[in-house]
């Protein structure tokens, strides 16, 4: 189980992806997340790279099935 992501992660989702997430949404399967798609994933990952300064690798992140898991993989 991935840890609860910090506020800045939720802010990126809200401000840059226009997704208002609840705590439940963070651990919901991405397939069930309303409005989620591959373009949103790219937008999120680009924003995460900018925020963390780290270079991310897509194949690793495709394994992540929830937003919380995306955060954990991206900040590992």
């Amino acid at each position: 189980m991935a840890e609860t992501p910090p506020d800045w992660f939720v802010e990126i989702l809200r401000d840059e992806l226009d997704i208002d997430v609840t705590a439940d949404d963070l651990t919901r399967s991405l397939d069930e997340l309303p409005g989620w798609d591959s373009v949103k994933l790219l937008t999120l990952l680009v924003a995460l790279e900018r925020h963390t300064g780290a270079t991310l690798s897509l194949p690793d992140l495709l394994e992540a099935r929830t937003l919380a898991a995306v955060h954990e993989t991206a900040t590992r």
Binding site: S38, V39, L41, L42, L45, V46, E49, T55, L56, S57, L58, P59, L62
Partner: peptide, 12 residues
Amino acid sequence: MDGLWRQWVDTF
């Protein structure tokens, strides 16, 4: 754009 973006284009 970086490697992540290229991987995304290739994949999706």
